[in-house]
């Protein structure tokens, strides 16, 4: 048995009625790693996290966690040892999960108690977390009075108030601006550096590349791939995006001609506002062909660019 694996799913499937949400997921989480789960909305990321927490009962398959017995580690089903497992797991959902009418300190204290932290230890933990998340000077403020960033920090602080082994983060940067996002990723790293295993879901694959040790790609309930960010990047490096903006913008004609051009290998196109975005295999060659198509159609070019597509657009391709 791999001693590094702290949590794993075995043929995990979840159905809500006739809807298949997760399909035969086999995923291992290694101790002290940051595992990112990425996928578009509805891909099953949150359900996977809830299943790991034991909040969603698997329709089939199991979720197992590593439990140290004497010198050996044994896997035990999460559903059969919920309270024990949950006392070692922290969870933070996409939206801050705390009482907005309680202060920062009150929230930490309440959830610490609910997570069975001893009274003396809890006070120490609260102080440590207030420092770690830079919330000390706001500790007596009501949670509803905090800014979005501080609320997210508080949420994460609450998640680890009981010093869990594993931290599950569901879309931790979902509604945050880039600066705050960076801050959260920084904090996540710091938490991870303290030996915690972090499992996080996000659709910001670019961010996940920066923070995760491994990334698991989910699509329509299926686990597409698991690998390091570099491995994932390699798998999608073949593709480029050509962004076109022109006047008068006779885009239908341009699209038609582009698809007919043998030198351009288009996987798909999107018409977004005044832009035409093409997902192509050979970016540089295609860019030249697009410029000539625009010229031939007497389109005044406002913007023609080549860029790497966001990873989320690549899920289907992977």
């Amino acid at each position: 048995m791999d001693s590094k694996v702290i949590l794993k799913t075995q043929d995990l499937s979840v159905y809500f009625g006739d809807n298949r949400i997760l399909n035969n997921i086999n995923l291992s989480v290694h101790s002290s790693e940051i595992l990112g789960v990425v996928g578009v909305s509805g891909s099953g990321k949150t359900t996977l996290l809830l299943s790991l927490l034991g909040l969603v009962k698997p329709s089939s398959g199991t979720v197992l966690f590593s439990h140290k017995r004497k010198k050996d580690y044994v896997f035990k089903p999460v559903n059969e040892h919920l309270d024990y497992f949950r006392s070692h797991v922290g969870f933070s959902s996409q939206h801050p999960s705390f009482y907005t009418k309680l202060t920062i300190k009150e929230n930490l204290s309440f959830f610490g108690n609910m997570m069975l932290v001893g009274k003396g230890l809890l006070q120490q933990r609260i102080n440590v977390l207030l420092d770690l998340f830079e919330l000390k000077q706001h500790r007596d403020k009501l949670a509803e009075e905090l800014s979005g960033g501080m609320q997210k920090r508080l949420d994460m602080a609450i998640s680890i108030v009981h010093n869990p082994l594993i931290l599950l983060l569901d879309e931790p940067t979902g509604e945050l601006d880039p600066l705050l996002r960076k801050e959260i990723w920084f904090l996540t790293k710091r938490i991870n550096e303290k030996g915690k295993t972090v499992i996080l879901c996000s659709h910001f694959i670019n961010d996940l590349e920066q923070v995760c040790d491994r990334i698991a790609v989910l699509h329509e309930g299926n686990l597409i791939t698991v690998g390091t960010p570099a491995e994932i990047r390699e798998r999608i490096s073949l593709y480029d995006q050509v962004v076109v903006e022109s006047v008068p913008g006779n885009y239908d004609k341009i699209i038609s001609q582009a698809y007919k051009d043998k030198h351009i290998k288009i996987r798909k196109h999107i018409k977004q506002m005044n832009y035409l975005i093409f997902l192509v295999e050979n970016g540089h060659d295609s860019l030249k062909r697009f410029i000539s198509i625009l010229d031939s159609n007497k389109e005044k070019i406002i913007d023609v660019r080549l860029r790497k597509p966001p990873l989320e657009e690549m899920f289907e391709l992977i």
Binding site: L53, Y84, F91, S93, S97, F98, F111, M114, M115, S159
Partner: peptide, 13 residues
């Protein structure tokens, strides 16, 4: 309906 409900659900209480 509290946003904290999910956290209470995962608490070992």
């Amino acid at each position: 309906n509290s946003s904290a409900h999910i956290r209470n659900l995962v608490a070992p209480t």
